[in-house]
Amino acid sequence: MAERDCSLQLQEQVQRQLQSGAGEGLDIAGGASRTGFNLAVGENPLSLAEHAGVIDYQPDELMLKVRSGTSLASLEKLLAAEGQGFAADIPRPGAGSTIGGAVATGWDGPARVFGLSLRDVVIGCRMLNGRGEIVNFGGQVMKNVAGYDLSRLQVGALGTLGVLLDVTLRLWPQPEYSLTRSFVASVDDLPQWWQKTRLLRPLISGACHCGDRLYLRLSGRRAAVVPLLDSLGGEDSDFDWCAVRDLRHRFFSAEQLACVYLPRAMPFEPRSGTAMVDWEGARVWVADGDHGALQRQAAELGGFVRILRGRVLAAAGGGEDWHRRIKRAFDPEGLFNRDLYRTHFGGAEV
C-alpha cells in the first residue's frame, strides 16, 4: 500500500480553485466504487486516491487513524492480523473502495442492526473546509464532548461539507467464531422469526431474507455460539454476507434499486418489484419497484427510501433549511460536490 500525505497539495488545489474566481466546483473522488449507485463523480474531480496510509494504529486503544484514500481491503487485512476489525460493518462495493468514501456515504452492512453503525464509530476527522482551511474535529478517544460533533456530521454528508483528509475510527475485537444457518421461510413467516431472533441477542450478527430462505448468522465465543446453534436447527449455510454488505449480490444488479428503511419489526411488502429483507426487517431492498409508491408506503410506516439506482426522489423530512445553512457554514462558495448536494440534500443554490 502506497503511503503518502497529500494534505498540502490538496489544500493548494482547493485554494487555487477558490482564488481562480471561475466559479467552478470540485468533485471529490475516492475509489469511484459507488458511481453505479447514484453517486457519480462530477466533471472536475479532486482525487484522494494518492492520499493514503495508516497514521496511527493502536490495538490497545481499539483505535485507527488513517488517510481517507486508504483502501478498505488493506485496512481489513491489517486489523485482522491483530484479531481486530472495524466496530461497524462497513460496505466496500469495489476492490478500490476507500475509507474516506465509506465515511462520506455512511452506509452500513447487515450487522448494523445488532451493533453499531459507521456514524457511531467515527471519533475524529481532519478535513479541508470550503475556505481552504485544514480543520480537526473529535480526536482519538471514544468519549469526547468538546465542541460540536462535526466529525460525525461528515458521515453520510457525501463530501458536500468538505474534503475528508484523515478519519479516526473505533475498532472492535473480531468474534472468535461465526456461523450461518438457513431456514425455509416466506415473507409472511418473518414477523414470527423476528420474535425468535430477539432471543438470539447478543450473539446474532445477521438476519437476512432472500428468495425463499432466511439466513441467520451467529457470532461470539465458540462456547456460547455452539449450544445456541444446536437449539436453533436449520441447515449450515455458506451465505455470502460480504456480497450483501458490499452490494455485490446479484440482487443488486437490477436497473432500479431502492432501499427502504423502516422501524424494526414493521411488516412490509412492496406493491411492485422484488424484495430482499435485511436488518431483521428494518431495511428492505427493492429491485425494479415503483419508487414513488415505495416512498409513500415507507412514509406511512414512519420510514424513508434511498434510491441507489433510478431517478433520485426529492428528500422528505424537515431538515432542508438546516441542510442549506450547514452547507453554507462549511462551504460558503458552494465548492464541493455540487451535483451530489443538489441531488441528495434537496439543495437550493448555496
Partner: peptide, 24 residues
C-alpha cells in the same frame, strides 16, 4: 420552528443532524 430529526429507523436521510444536536 419544530424540527423532527431521525425516527424509529436505524438510519436517517440527509446530514446527521441527530449527531450534531448531541452535546450541543
Amino acid at each position: 420552528e419544530i424540527l423532527t430529526l431521525g425516527s424509529d429507523c436505524l438510519a436517517q436521510p440527509g446530514y446527521d443532524l441527530l449527531a450534531l444536536v448531541h452535546g450541543s
